[in-house]
Amino acid sequence: MHKSSCINNKFKFAFTSVVSFLFIYVMIFEFIIPGTSFLPSFTTLVYSLPSLWKEYDFFNRFLLTYTVVYLSLFLGFLVLYLKRIFIIKFYYVFPEFINLPNLLKYFPAFFFAILFTYWFQQNILAEYAYGFLYVVWLLSYSLMSSVPSVPQEFIDSAKTMGKTYNEIIAQIIWKHSLPKVFKRLEDSHYLLWVIVLIYEFIAETNGLGLIYKKALNYNDISVVLDLAVILSFVMLFGKMVLSAIKKRFVFWES
């Protein structure tokens, strides 16, 4: 099957899943077991939307979280691009570095969110730094771990043509690793949303995580669900944009 039709099918499937889930939700909580305290009915969800917009100040908070996520992705990738030669050389000097995540495997992911909150309290810049550092770490690690898979034949060919070490890194190793790095970027996009929301929940910064925290304090489960549905569409759209960028600019396979 053609690669682009595979991607389209993937998104069709994701979109259909969300819509199906909503349909099942409506059927169960609107018609089969309405008025249960377990989950609110669909009508209640719709009626709570204006309150999400006004009382929870959705727009401004959405703007902050959205900016943190996508600015982190953009700047993280930019830094990776500018420092690609240094990062690849770092791998050649310390190849054991790529085993480091094995040590951190059982380390709770939210620990760093707590640590940042402890250091910077509700500082907005700290939230940006948190997202940015997460992306830089993830992409740098992804770049370093894809270096060993560069075919020796590519490097030998470049060597026989008199290319320098830096030219081989920039024109061969970086380019060959790019599809894997971009795949990691796509995959970690969802994870980035989650860790930024967790950070905002813990640090109580002015983002969507704070809406979750307030809604939970007010027992406002309708807003929690509204937000979940809105975010799933936003994340899906973000993933579609990233896939389109990959298809356009990183069209080859490692």
Binding site: P151, E153, D156, S157, T160, K175, F251, W252
Partner: peptide, 13 residues
């Protein structure tokens, strides 16, 4: 001397 290896190393990008 220019070497052409077993896996023809034309760069796919």
């Amino acid at each position: 001397n220019i070497c052409i290896p077993t896996i023809s190393s034309s760069f796919p990008w």
